[in-house]
Amino acid sequence: MLNSKNKKVSIILIIIAVVYLLASFRLPDYPYVPVDSDMVPKTLGFILLFLSILLFFVKDDAEKKQSIPKSEIKVILTVLAFVLIYILLFEIIGFVITTALFILITSWFLGYKGWVSNIIVSISIPLVIYLLFTQFLKVQLPAGILPF
């Protein structure tokens, strides 16, 4: 039954709409305004529900079929994992070190083979940005384990 992309997406959207509507109906009252905070969300929820049901019956557009080879999906997921690790360690280890490692490893993983320039860029860019932010703009980036 769910053989078309549109139908699958439509089901997901219907679920989102229902969850959003349930949450809208549970918003607390504020009695001193003529239109409370739940009116617009409820309307939006029903609109999404309606549109999602319409989408269910729309045929997939034929001309723009995109397919992604399996090997590429692996690459994307790995980069995604790198990004998540980077973010997790961002405040703990600090901006300079995590950023340097991230640039170094990701560039290498994606096929950049010039080690010397890779290392130079990985170290200099985070340092320059860090100094620019903290010294000139006076905007703090996480220092982490570095002393400055």
Binding site: G114, V116, S117, I120, V121, L132, F136
Partner: peptide, 27 residues
């Protein structure tokens, strides 16, 4: 650093370097 950097990176770096120096001067 510039001497040991590849040409492409060299251009970008020089640009950044100029920016930073200008900014520090301004500061």
């Amino acid at each position: 650093k510039m001497k040991i950097t590849k040409w492409r990176v060299y251009k970008l770096k020089r640009l950044l370097g100029v920016f930073i120096v200008m900014i520090l001067m301004l500061f």
